[in-house]
């Protein structure tokens, strides 16, 4: 689904990604783990075209195109979705209005009929209910005054409505209580259809017990240093990163 080859990238003058190679297989759940500051979030930012990150070398191949030179909104329209680690608040912009505009933009891009307001509200209410969200968040400002857990549920809600093909989840599980973690994981599982590809960044095994990853990659100092299966997580949990880095 996505091939990242020899990707180098800087934030400001500092080189963060130092030759990332990563193959994300269609329909699979990949997990990316690594110490704080190793460059995991920078990798997701490079994939979605965040202005903070400048790619200096390498390619990100996706659906036969190199994403590196593509504007951020076009990458999103092509089905790349990032659940942000800290979703930003946009007061005044109604949550439902925003999400319908996003969905309509995508439908327009694909030449599909645009979902009208009534259909959309029905859709949004149904999804919000599944995620155990308070119905009033539909009409509140985008992430405005949302708790950490509400913001993460809202990211999952957006994912479920926009139906992306390549899903990047940056610490979707951080700061969640047990109920929220369960709701978020169920949302992710609902999206698994053997076609969609996931890249899940996490520090904890907890979420992986719900979403059952296919592959685990270890990230260290701007590179993928080890690839393996779910068993790698157990090694990490018992021995820490040092054991793998030494290998």
């Amino acid at each position: 689904m996505m091939q990242i080859k020899n990707l180098h990238a800087k934030i400001g003058e500092k080189e963060i990604l130092k030759g990332v190679n990563l193959a994300l297989e269609k329909g699979k759940v990949h997990v990316l783990m690594g110490t704080n500051g190793s460059g995991k979030s920078t990798l997701t930012k490079a994939i979605v075209g965040h202005y903070d990150v400048s790619v200096t070398a390498g390619t990100i191949e996706y659906k036969g195109k190199n994403l590196v030179d593509m504007p951020a909104e076009e990458r999103a329209l092509e089905g790349v979705f990032l659940s942000f680690q800290n979703p930003i608040e946009i007061p005044g912009v109604n949550n439902a209005y925003f999400l319908r505009a996003a969905l309509n933009a995508k439908e327009k891009y694909r030449g599909e009929k645009e979902t009208n307001a009534a259909e959309f509200l029905k859709l949004m209410r149904a999804h919000a209910q599944k995620l155990g969200m308070n119905p009033d968040m539909i009409s509140r400002g985008l992430n405005d005054g949302f708790s950490g857990g509400e913001k993460k549920r809202n990211e999952i809600l957006q994912m479920e409505i926009l139906q992306p093909d390549m899903i990047l989840l940056d610490e979707i599980d951080s700061g969640l209580d047990i109920d929220a973690l369960k709701a978020v994981s169920q949302g992710i599982n609902r999206m698994k259809d053997g076609e969609r590809t996931f890249l899940v960044i996490t520090h904890y095994k907890r979420i992986l017990d719900y979403i059952h990853p296919d592959y685990v990659h270890i990230f260290q100092d701007g590179q993928v240093i080890k690839n393996g299966g779910p068993e790698l997580v157990d090694v990490l949990e018992s021995e820490g990163y040092q054991a793998i880095v030494k290998d």
């Binding site: 979605v48 075209g49 965040h50 202005y51 504007p71 951020a72 909104e73 999103a76 329209l77 979705f81 990032l82 942000f84 979703p87 930003i88 946009i90 925003f98 999400l99 505009a101 996003a102 969905l103 933009a105 995508k106 891009y109 957006q158 926009l162």
Partner: peptide, 16 residues
């Protein structure tokens, strides 16, 4: 810029 980036990641271009 961070707000506009968020919207762009959700298919909404800068002007919109």
């Amino acid at each position: 810029d961070e707000q506009l980036m968020y919207l762009r990641q959700r298919c909404i271009g800068e002007e919109d």
